[in-house]
């Protein structure tokens, strides 16, 4: 909105100058342009930091509402069903296909070095540390995040969230806290499921594509896994749960401007949460692996 205003100020200044038809004034036009760009940047930065502040307060209030989980246990259960049970198929499909692909490609590579027996170890590490949790996170940000963004956005523009407040119910406790809690609980088993399915499909491919004996495959998996591999993988679950739920709910609550606004807030929720999931994935791995 600010951007549009600034642009129009600039065009107005420009037309005023050309109306004055004073050729020497055109000399200042680049200067004016820089000034207007600067102003635009400043307003955008201001908006960014205000939004960050709002997001922080929003998240804080969602966590502070945790004591109300007993009262809203039914909502927590509903959300746990939606983000947990209902997400199982998509998590399975993505984990199985990536597990299989990984086994095939890495197996081909290892074959060149004559180290095919190491396939179990290399797939196990990448699945448990990275791909299992990451795929789960991305799928859930598309599935659970988009649902939150659209549902809460529609509630916002139809004034249902205002109605909650108007009749004395805290909308963050009623709508956001159950989603956050459900995600925090359900993302752990979903990660485990993603790891398990990825490894199983890798093992299947190892046996049937690369002709590696399952005993050899699993022997290269189990004895070598260290606690830190699991810490890296499973620490990501709660981190992703917070990112996905809070970002998508915040965007839903900020929806403005009719049905198009709901679309925008949903897209923004998915894009921002997927991006943050990718970034967080990197940093969790880096920090844990460097410190354990």
């Amino acid at each position: 909105m600010g951007g549009k205003n600034e642009k129009s100020t600039f065009t107005r200044m420009k037309t005023e100058l050309s109306k004055a038809s004073a050729p020497h004034l055109t000399f200042f036009m680049p200067l004016l342009f820089i000034r207007s760009m600067e102003k635009k940047l400043v307003t955008q930065l201001k908006v960014f930091f205000l939004t960050m502040q709002d997001f922080f307060l929003f998240s804080l209030r969602a966590f502070m509402a945790f004591p109300k989980m007993i009262r809203y246990w039914r909502d927590v259960l509903d959300q746990a069903t939606i983000c947990g049970r209902d997400s199982i198929p998509i998590v399975l499909v993505s984990a199985i296909s990536i597990g299989a692909l990984l086994a095939i490609e890495v197996g081909n590579l290892l074959e060149d070095f004559g180290a095919k027996t190491m396939l179990g170890r290399s797939t196990a590490l990448s699945v448990i540390r990275e791909l299992g949790p990451l795929l789960m996170g991305l799928m859930l940000s598309a599935r659970f995040g988009s649902r939150n963004g659209a549902e809460l956005g529609a509630m916002q523009i139809s004034e249902q969230i205002d109605a909650l407040r108007a009749f004395g119910t805290d909308p963050i406790a009623k709508l956001v806290m159950p989603r956050l809690l459900a995600a925090l609980i359900m993302f752990l088993p979903l990660t485990a499921l993603s790891d398990f399915a990825g490894l199983q499909s890798a093992a299947y491919m190892a046996e049937h594509y690369h002709r590696i004996d399952p005993g050899i495959f699993w022997n290269a998996v189990y004895p070598r896994l260290a606690p830190k591999d699991f810490v890296v993988g499973f620490l990501k679950a709660p981190v992703f749960a917070m990112i996905i739920t809070l970002v998508s709910c915040f965007n839903g609550f900020s929806a403005r401007g009719g049905t198009a606004g709901v679309g925008r807030s949903t897209i923004k929720g998915i894009v921002v949460s997927s991006g943050l999931v990718l970034i967080a994935n990197f940093y969790v791995s880096k920090i844990v692996l460097e410190n354990m």
């Binding site: 205002d162 009749f167 004395g168």
Partner: peptide, 23 residues
């Protein structure tokens, strides 16, 4: 504060423009 407002708001009933019923 929002929390102390809840009891005040109950003195007033609000009928929203689009009804704002929970669908």
């Amino acid at each position: 504060k929002e929390r102390s407002l809840y009891s005040i708001r109950r003195k007033m009933g609000m009928v929203f423009q689009g009804n704002a019923l929970f669908d």
